[in-house]
């Protein structure tokens, strides 16, 4: 059984803080989790500085987009026994990585009036820089999965990370297929499940925020979309949104 509480740090790189918010929003469940977990560093809820001791688990949100963040993630890796990439940005670069397909200067001048202050390069997931021990997928992450992962680590068993697709969960929910009936491009067939097909079960297509499941075939999906008359522009935008698929197709 466990040897005292898990020492956990929560970190943020280039991101919107939405995944940290999921942890805060666990509310009552968070109090239960805190019986097993000691939060050593969590800037969103406490001003305490990073303690000078090793961590059992680092939960890292956000993509790496510049040198400082690259140094930061290597430092976090060094001080942590188990590193969790939490959310689409940390797992694959996420929405940040949309810019990877456009020249940097062009992106910056589109978004900022004074781009000379920006110090940012291509956005990548954590695994471009360090070894990642577990991924929590989604934009934002799923609270239930976060709890399961922390609790599993607390009792020293490997966390269960689902290896099924969103499409499979959508079928289990008995939903009519949005792609087959409405012709709208849905990323469910190649996207990591675990969200219980949240979007398609509510009538909108999967955007692929949980990343591409190993062994699925995005090229086949692109072909199916093309055959169904989805426009090349829409296909490009759809595949680029959460970078992962696009990266696979253009590699």
């Amino acid at each position: 059984m466990m040897n005292g509480k898990l020492k956990v740090g929560v970190f943020k790189l280039a991101s919107c803080s939405g995944c940290q918010m999921v942890l805060v929003h666990l509310e009552e469940s968070l109090l239960e989790v805190l019986k097993y977990v000691e939060l050593k560093y969590f800037r969103m809820v406490s001003d305490d500085d990073l303690p000078n001791e090793p961590l059992d688990v680092a939960i890292v949100e956000g993509a790496v987009t510049n040198e400082e963040e690259g140094i930061m993630i290597k430092k976090i890796r060094k001080m942590s026994r188990f590193l969790i990439a939490a959310g689409a940005c940390a797992a694959t670069g996420g929405l940040n990585a949309i810019k990877n397909t456009t020249p940097e200067g062009e992106v910056e001048s589109t978004v900022y009036s004074s781009p000379e202050y920006i110090r940012s390069g291509k956005a990548f997931g954590l695994n471009e820089y360090v070894n990642v021990d577990a991924y929590l997928y989604g934009c934002p992450i799923d609270g239930r999965e976060l709890i399961n992962t922390l609790m599993s680590l607390a009792i020293r068993v490997p966390p269960y990370i689902p290896g099924i697709t969103v499409c499979m969960e959508c079928k289990m929910n008995g939903n009519e297929c949005i792609f087959l009936t409405r012709g709208e491009p849905c990323l469910g067939p190649v996207t990591v499940g675990g969200c219980n097909a949240l979007c398609p079960s509510n009538g909108v297509t999967c955007e692929g925020c949980r990343g591409v499941l190993k062994g699925t075939n995005p090229k086949g999906l692109e072909l199916a979309w093309t055959n169904a008359g989805v426009s090349p522009d829409l296909i490009r935008l759809k595949l680029r949104k959460y970078s992962d698929v696009y990266k696979l197709l253009t590699r």
């Binding site: 099924i164 697709t165 499409c167 499979m168 079928k171 289990m172 297929c177 469910g188 067939p189 190649v190 499941l213 062994g215 699925t216 075939n217 995005p218 090229k219 086949g220 999906l221 072909l223 199916a224």
Partner: peptide, 14 residues
């Protein structure tokens, strides 16, 4: 077939 199949596993479910 592997060029076309998306590997989604929907067939297994249904």
């Amino acid at each position: 077939l592997a060029d076309r199949c998306t590997g989604c596993g929907a067939c297994n479910m249904v």
